[in-house]
Design a protein around this nucleic acid. Structure first.
Length: 406
RNA sequence: GGGGGAAUUCCAGAGCGGUCAAAUGGGGCAGACUGUAAAUCUGUUGUCUACGACUUCGAUGGUUCGAAUCCAUCUUCCCCCA
């Protein structure tokens, strides 16, 4: 089975421009492909992780990846899948984010001579001259067609600025540029990028009369049709400082039954046969599958040690035995105490478990808080000494554990 | 450039000048049930020194005993015509 077939079997491929050609290129290690990453935050998240895995898989099959950081396109902002104008980012934030991305990616992909490349499209996009640019590529784009593109459709109702309208042209230009500069013959991206990517293959065909290919990766959706990798408080980050390995583990440990196998197939590197065997699992047996999923992903992102720790901690906490060293912890600062004492409500907000005192109060009143295995009351007060040594374990709801120490 | 409309709490979306911290739905959080799943049911969802007080309804001024609701200016967005 070639790599293309494997990707397909894993359900990673959404759309392709020319299946035969792409299969041929990928299976024979002849593809020089790129995936773009927009520096919209200072850390990569789960969505990017899929792309990184894909890069890794293809690299292992002998193809050459180019990771493109959108330092230039970030100046514009991609309107795809957005219902409103993206907030414009300052040049400084973009640079900062680019650096952060670079560091994270190096953990997954091997860069260097003859291996993967990392480039920043600011290097060529920022130099472009408006009129030259229009004359060079502007003539190749049909506004009529662009307006028909899926990525703009929803924005036709809400309003779309000219700035954002140009995003597709910028992205197309990237491909065109890299096709010539690095022999890049293929582009991958999320399925929401399809129209932007076609813009690139089209431009190459028109300008150079050559063929280039594009393929999109299935977006990771749950059974309800929502994007996965998001929580109420935002994305699930790969940066351990933004999403702790334990929380990361728990996110996957808690996916719905209907989604486990899909996630394992798409995100892990487990052999397909092994996954197919799991397909038959059902009911509470799926809990085992969820553990595997969570462990494997944590291992990939944070390393084996962290995965081990997270798993042990989770098992200990949920089985109610053993103590759990690796749960998220907060060190209480002195000024949180008043005369050497602290009330539950303050404790909860100090640990970031509640956003406000009022929220903490409600939570406690509804019986959602346990401190050291005892149900908390609003009037509870703790001594400073209680937090020395191992500290105190706070349980919010059924699944959130937190340790408070001094 | 001309004409019309809209801005409400996380989102969507109600809201007579007093009874509005603001209907309803979604989402979130918690409780029950469970398998750390889903579905379902219940409670809750501005802040605080909490049976009371304080700050909110795009921004700034104004009318009024009183304004999310009326007036003016500004900002942003949408629609129609050019």
């Amino acid at each position: 089975m070639g790599i293309y077939e494997e990707l397909k079997a894993r359900g990673l491929i959404a759309q392709v421009t020319d299946e035969e050609e792409i299969r041929e290129l990928l299976n024979n290690g002849k593809a020089v492909f790129y995936i773009g990453f927009d520096p919209t935050a200072d850390s990569l998240h789960v969505g990017h992780f899929m792309a990184l895995c894909l890069m890794k898989r293809l690299q292992m099959a002998g193809n050459k990846p180019i990771a493109l950081i959108g330092g230039g396109t970030g100046m514009i902002g991609d309107p795809s899948g957005r219902s409103d104008l993206r907030q414009m980012m300052t040049t400084e934030t973009i640079c900062h984010n680019c650096d952060a991305f670079k560091k994270q990616m190096e953990r997954f992909i091997e860069f260097g001579e003859g291996k993967a490349m990392m480039v920043n499209n600011a290097d060529w996009l920022m130099k472009l001259n408006y009129v030259d640019m229009l004359r060079e590529v502007g003539c190749c784009f049909s506004v009529n067609n662009m307006l028909r593109a899926e990525c703009y459709k929803q924005r036709m109702e809400k309003g779309l600025s000219f700035l954002e309208f140009n995003y597709m042209i910028m992205q197309s230009y990237d491909f065109y540029h890299m096709f010539q500069a690095f022999g890049c013959n293929m582009q991958f991206g999320g399925d929401d990028q399809w129209s932007n990517m076609l813009g690139g293959t089209d431009l190459i065909r028109r300008k150079l009369g050559k063929d280039a290919y594009a393929m999109t990766i299935t977006l990771l959706m749950n059974a309800e049709g929502k994007k996965m990798g998001k929580t109420a408080s935002g994305a699930v980050w790969l940066d351990p400082n933004k999403t702790s390995p334990f929380d990361f583990y728990q996110y996957w440990r808690n996916v719905g039954d209907a989604d486990v196998l899909k996630c394992i197939r798409m995100l892990t590197f487990l052999p397909l046969e092994e996954i197919d065997a799991m397909d038959k699992w059902e009911g509470s047996q799926l809990n085992r599958a969820k553990e595997i999923l969570a462990y494997e992903l944590t291992k990939l992102v944070h390393g084996e040690d962290e995965a081990e720790k997270a798993q042990e901690t989770a098992r200990a906490l949920f089985s109610g035995t053993g103590d759990a060293e690796n749960m998220p912890a907060t060190v209480l600062s002195e000024d949180r105490f008043e005369n050497g004492k602290i009330g539950v409500l303050n404790l909860l907000t100090a640990c970031g478990l509640c956003a406000s005192n009022g929220e903490a109060r409600r939570l406690v009143q509804q019986g959602g808080v346990m401190v050291s295995d005892k149900k908390a009351e609003v009037t509870d007060v703790y001594d400073r000494e209680d937090f020395s040594g191992e500290g105190v374990v706070i349980k919010k709801g059924k699944k959130i554990f937190h340790r408070a120490q001094i």
